[in-house]
Simulated assay, not measured.
Amino acid sequence: MPTLAIIIGSTRPGRGGLPVAQWFVERARAHGAFELDVVDLLELGLPFLDEPNHPRLRQYTQQHTKDWSARVDAADAFVIVTPEYNHGMSAPVKNALDFLHEEWQYKPVGFVAYGGVSAGTRATNMLKQVVTALRMTPVTEAVTLPFFRQFVDDEDGVQTNETMETSADAMLDELVRMEAALRRLRPG
Score class of each variant (00 low, 15 high):
residue 96 A to S: 11
residue 97 L to V: 13
residue 97 L to H: 11
residue 98 D to I: 08
residue 99 F to G: 03
residue 100 L to M: 09
residue 102 E to H: 07
residue 104 W to N: 04
residue 106 Y to E: 03
residue 106 Y to L: 08
residue 109 V to W: 05
residue 111 F to Y: 14
residue 111 F to Q: 04
residue 113 A to T: 15
residue 114 Y to T: 00
residue 115 G to N: 13
residue 116 G to A: 14
residue 116 G to N: 11
residue 116 G to I: 14
residue 117 V to M: 15
residue 118 S to V: 01
residue 121 T to Q: 13
residue 121 T to G: 08
residue 122 R to F: 15
residue 127 L to I: 11
residue 127 L to P: 10
residue 127 L to G: 11
residue 128 K to C: 15
residue 128 K to I: 12
residue 128 K to N: 14
residue 130 V to P: 15
residue 130 V to F: 12
residue 131 V to H: 11
residue 132 T to P: 04
residue 132 T to A: 15
residue 134 L to I: 09
residue 135 R to D: 09
residue 138 P to W: 01
residue 140 T to Y: 13
residue 141 E to W: 02
residue 143 V to W: 05
residue 144 T to I: 02
residue 144 T to R: 06
residue 145 L to T: 08
residue 147 F to R: 02
residue 148 F to T: 02
residue 148 F to S: 09
residue 150 Q to F: 14
residue 150 Q to V: 03
residue 151 F to D: 09
residue 152 V to F: 05
residue 152 V to E: 07
residue 152 V to Y: 03
residue 154 D to M: 05
residue 156 D to T: 08
residue 156 D to F: 05
residue 156 D to P: 01
residue 157 G to I: 01
residue 157 G to L: 02
residue 160 T to A: 13
residue 160 T to P: 05
residue 160 T to L: 10
residue 161 N to T: 07
residue 161 N to Q: 10
residue 162 E to P: 01
residue 162 E to Y: 01
residue 162 E to K: 01
residue 163 T to C: 00
residue 164 M to C: 00
residue 166 T to D: 06
